[in-house]
Amino acid sequence: MSDQQKNPFEIVERGPAFSDRLEVAPPPAGGAEDAHPSVAALRERFPDAVRRAEVSAGDQHVVYVDPDANLEVLGFLKTDDAHHYDLLVDVTAVDYGGGLPLQVVYQLWSIPHRRALRVKCELPLERLHIRSVTGLWNSANWLEREVFDLFGITFEGHPDLRRILMPENYAEGHPLRKDFPLRGRFSRAEQTRRALSQDPKDYYIPEELEVGGAPSLPEALRPRTLEDGSEG
């Protein structure tokens, strides 16, 4: 309650939160526990890659993995018969704000063993890229695109890394980052103007425009494609 008794205008002037400065307390680490068979196996097999493990919400096991080793660890978890996490339920990311690293979260489920595991990779803000797991699970395709769109994390080796929910030429950044204001960076009038002034060519991706024997892509359309979309 004490916060609310301060001068409200002071807070207005402070503006949105910062991604590069520490304002909130870091998330506390839970008690590490190796009761989960896959966690124990990972510790044994990848002693360098497994940073820590914890139990969350009572019985949910979380493993923190070195982001450089994500493909090896997840590949082991998928293909090894003793673990066999054949269903990649979800790929998402978490931004705590305050300059803390972004977390990429993989939710795994093994249909034959009926076991769940959560694997997290922490990416520092200055190095937001990680290898894609689309080679292991095809379900990662759209999920990684969504993380790329909303958080700006690049997935190396992804076959088709484009924005998926926001328009391709969205220029305001990555909405789910903590430094992104709720109502967007532009004014409503500017947002409306941008939305309505889209060229019809913005609605198609370059591969589509090549269908039907179209000669080659106009030069003006090229900058929209993959590499440039990252900080669009």
Binding site: P27, S56, Q60, V89, T92, V94
Partner: peptide
């Protein structure tokens, strides 16, 4: 503080709610 993933069987498939709290 902590995180929690909770799946239920929705009408369309596995509906999971993933919550992170500080």
């Amino acid at each position: 503080p902590g995180d929690c993933y909770f799946p239920v069987e929705g009408s369309k498939g596995e509906l999971g709610m993933y919550l992170v709290s500080d």
